[in-house]
């Protein structure tokens, strides 16, 4: 393989992983920014998305059914969590939030083991997206291009909504100062719930699109959680642009680093996180100025 082809391949891999991280971290970060709620079970929702997606595909025979229905199912799970636990924990302090959502990780882990078993499950990419596509003389799986494209579309949509629409202005106002936003007549409670649902749906979407690439395992929720948290902290808790920048940084370090410096790469993101926490504790692009 030529040198240029190697770098293009690594870049595509990094981009694809970054997009998955983005889909996950955007939900986590916005939920934190609005609700001041740290949801360690976000990775578990991603895992539920993958498993539910696999079941829907095998029931209907269509990946696209899973693509649309699995995020909805995960949103329903999220809504149940919201009304039973999360709403009550909003002002309970970070320790109680971490504890309860850590408990939820365990609960979801066993729900998956009970429902789907311990064996890793695969999912076939839809027929239209199988095979490879040539890009700058590099053959790359079409499905992974699809993930990159999907991530970019979600990114652009959210950016537009947040910066250009009235809903976006309401969200930004509430992140900045929720009491004042409520005083200005924004129904903050309903807005929070809507944003929470979107975050859960994106976690479910990430799960179902990740399943054909990584296959679903009971450990997937726990192993994706740490990079996602790092993205969120590096970018700045609650910040949309921060999640974009953070996921690109973490995705690139993890994939390109693994190819170039195999020994050090896995430690690099922790070093980066430590440096950010010391130098800029609020993250690269803080949500509140």
């Amino acid at each position: 393989m030529s040198d240029a082809a190697f770098w293009i391949l690594q870049l595509l891999n990094a981009l694809q992983y970054s997009m998955l991280l983005f889909l996950l971290s955007i939900g986590l970060t916005v939920i934190f920014g609005l609700l001041h709620f740290m949801n360690l079970a976000h990775g578990a929702l991603y895992m539920m998305g993958a498993y539910i997606g696999i079941s829907i595909t095998s029931a209907t025979g269509s990946f696209w059914a899973a693509f649309f229905l699995a995020p909805l199912a995960v949103t329903a799970i999220g809504a149940v969590l919201y009304f039973t636990l999360i709403r009550r924990l909003r002002n309970a302090g970070p320790m109680n939030q971490v504890l309860v959502t850590f408990g939820l990780i365990f609960v979801f882990l066993d729900i998956v083991r009970l429902g789907w078993g311990d064996i890793a499950l695969g999912l076939d990419a839809p027929t239209a997206l199988q095979g490879t596509t040539k890009f700058l003389s590099v053959s790359y799986p079409t499905y992974r291009f699809f993930i990159i494209g999907l991530g970019l579309v979600v990114m652009a949509t959210l950016m537009t909504i947040v910066s250009r629409t009235q809903i976006g202005a309401m969200i930004r106002a509430s992140v900045e100062n929720d009491d004042m936003a409520a005083a200005m007549g924004i129904n903050v409670g309903r807005l929070f719930f809507a944003v929470f649902c979107v975050g859960c749906a994106l976690a479910g979407l990430a799960g179902v699109v990740a399943a054909p690439v990584f296959s679903a395992t009971t450990g997937m929720g726990i192993s994706i959680l740490i990079p996602t948290l790092i993205v969120v902290v590096i970018g700045g808790l609650g910040s949309l642009q921060g999640a974009v920048v953070g996921s690109l940084i973490v995705g690139s370090i993890e994939t390109i680093g693994a190819a170039v410096l195999p020994g050090v790469a896995s430690i690099l993101i922790y070093v980066l996180l430590a440096v950010i926490l010391v130098v800029r504790p609020a993250g690269l692009i803080p949500a509140r100025v």
Partner: peptide, 16 residues
């Protein structure tokens, strides 16, 4: 075999 769900629920109940 499902010890995790027991401890998870126990933890949630304790905190709540």
């Amino acid at each position: 075999d499902h010890w995790h769900i027991v401890v998870g629920l126990l933890l949630i109940v304790t905190v709540m």
